[in-house]
């Protein structure tokens, strides 16, 4: 049995009774780190009535804190609990997702416990007993490799590691921990959860955008793009010429005179990548461009490029995605 001082903890993020996908990515990576440090991998699950979630977590153990006051997430209550636990058990590394919840908890915890904080990591490893993290800085224009020899708090970009390794094949041992902190002094109270307005196509809010340009050629072809967007769980948007033709409403236009979007995925189909268009989408997390012209400027801003007639690719892609879902 290794000392708790070498343990790797993963904060389990959950909302509406579901574990966020990146938690499994963290567990998968956490496993490697814990092994390298010869510590245990512990998942920390905080909430009310969410014990069943523990069963899916691939870890050496789950610390489960249950309290009615934790039913609705607030940064204050969860930070108080995490802080008390970390203070007591002193794990080596505490991993959070670089998400709305994780950012809050990690930064408060690191400051309160005077632990170093490394955020927005895309890679983590152990070298000579030190934790080495690679993280994104300056809007992805720079990567920074940093190391910490002692205890550390880390946030990890979702999508950095595969999730499979973090999914439990058999339920892990769960240790129910008595509520370690008081919630009276956290100074905040959850009021309600606001759902995004349904039916309202606000492409700036869509995480996945399938963008069509003049390469789509005819209005009749729009449904093909819609089908693909459906398979991806995304929304169709367009360059200006397509909107000009009246094939899609103005609210779908991306670019200088349209919307500024920053989705997780921007799939550009038959768009040349004129600066007026690029202006509106170049900050997307992942850009995949499909264009029949190898010299199209869109390839300068895309992460991945494919030179092909989009109509050859569309059916195959839609099918592959649908097949995967089924």
């Amino acid at each position: 049995m290794s000392p708790a001082g070498q343990d790797v903890w993963v904060h389990v993020e959950h909302l509406k009774g579901r574990v966020a996908g990146h938690t499994y990515e963290l567990l998968g990576k956490g496993r490697e780190i814990a092994d390298a440090l010869a510590g245990r991998l512990i998942a920390v699950l905080v909430g009310s009535g969410v014990r069943p979630l523990a069963e899916t977590l691939a870890a050496d153990g789950v610390l489960y804190v249950e309290d009615a006051g934790l039913a609705e997430y607030t940064p204050g209550s969860h930070a108080a609990v995490m802080r008390a636990l970390v203070e007591k058990e002193a794990p080596r590394a505490v991993l959070f997702g670089a998400t709305s919840m994780g950012m809050d908890l990690a930064s408060v915890l690191a400051a309160a416990l005077e632990r170093p904080l490394i955020v927005n990591c895309v890679n983590l490893q152990v070298r000579d007993g030190r934790t080495v993290a690679t993280c994104q800085m300056c809007g992805g224009k720079l990567l920074c490799e940093a190391e910490a020899s002692g205890p550390v708090v880390v946030t990890v970009m979702p999508g950095s590691f595969p999730a499979e390794a973090g999914l439990a094949k058999s339920p892990p041992p769960v240790e129910a921990v008595p509520m370690p902190a008081t919630l009276e002094t956290v100074g905040m109270r959850a009021i309600r959860l606001l759902e995004p307005e349904p039916g309202d196509v606000d492409i700036t809010k869509s995480a996945v955008l399938v963008a069509v340009g003049r390469g789509i050629q005819r209005q009749d072809n729009i449904p093909l793009a819609e089908e693909l967007a459906g398979a991806l769980g995304g929304t169709v948007c367009a360059s200006r010429p397509v909107v000009d033709q009246g094939w899609l409403p103005m609210s779908r236009q991306v670019g200088k005179s349209g919307m500024m979007v920053k989705p997780k995925l921007y799939l550009a189909l038959g768009i040349s990548g004129a600066p007026e268009h690029a202006e509106g989408m170049k900050d997307s997390d992942l850009i995949i461009a499909v264009n029949s012209d190898a010299k199209a400027p869109i390839f300068d801003i895309a992460d991945y490029g494919i030179v092909i007639d989009m109509y050859d690719l569309l059916p195959a892609l839609t099918q592959a995605l649908q097949g995967r879902k089924a």
């Binding site: 990690a106 930064s107 408060v108 690191a110 300056c138 809007g139 100074g187």
Partner: peptide
């Protein structure tokens, strides 16, 4: 955007022991 521990706000909350939401 320019540091490893980018969250001045959260760290300040933690240091001052004040309620913090980000």
């Amino acid at each position: 955007i320019d540091d490893l521990d980018a969250h001045v706000a959260g760290m300040l909350g933690g240091m001052m022991a004040l309620p913090y939401v980000g």
